[in-house]
Design a protein around this nucleic acid. Structure first.
Lengths: 99, 99
DNA sequence: ACGATATTTAGGCAATCTTCTAATTATTAT
DNA sequence: ATAATAATTAGAAGATTGCCTAAATATCGT
């Protein structure tokens, strides 16, 4: 699948977006990410695997835990795709000055 | 479904993204949007219906044609969601100065 | 009103997605 | 080595997606 598709698909699920939002405040392990979510840890694990695939998070083992970190690189790429709609040869009335 | 989900899901398909990119250059009718795409007009119509649902395009009838226009409002909203990851109480090393 | 053109809607099929339970792997503590 | 804890993987069910063909709707020209 195309890379942009993977990223936007990953962002299209509310559960995954809420995980990403919680990771903004700091790293969390899989168990912590599962807390409060109305689904099993197995399902949470599956969502995490998709986020990992999309490059939106990285993971490292810390003892018994898998610790997840937000990877902001891909966010910037997705943002850039969206920004191109305004900055790069778009219609005049939609254009934003380059600064 | 949540609004953000609808928008990101709409953006997650390469066919739909390519349609949006072509609409940047100017309005196109359904037939023109279908040209060059490896699928039937019915399928293209289905994709257009999803883009409309997401608020990414608007449509008006012009004689026999349905003319599609890019609606940039929603792009800005999606962009804002992504920007929040950097500007709003993110981790220090990811933060971008507010200007 | 009729036929041609433009587009959407309906119904169906295969693939993918989200969730589950059960089984497996990895690490820690005894 | 064994038991406990943390997390993933496997396999299955139900919903959704993306595509198709066929039928329906809307407009235009005669």
């Amino acid at each position: 699948m195309e890379y942009s598709s993977i990223v936007f698909k990953a962002l299209s699920d509310p559960t995954r977006r809420s995980m990403l939002e919680r990771l903004r405040a700091g790293d969390l392990n899989a168990g912590e990410l599962a807390e409060g979510l109305p689904m099993t840890k197995a399902s949470v694990s599956h969502h995490l695997s998709l986020l990992k695939q999309a490059g939106l998070v990285r993971v490292r083992r810390q003892g018994q835990n898998q610790v997840y970190t937000l990877d902001t690189t891909v966010f910037q790429e997705a943002m850039q795709w969206l920004m191109n709609f305004f900055q790069q040869d778009g219609k005049a009335e939609d254009r934003i000055p380059k600064g």
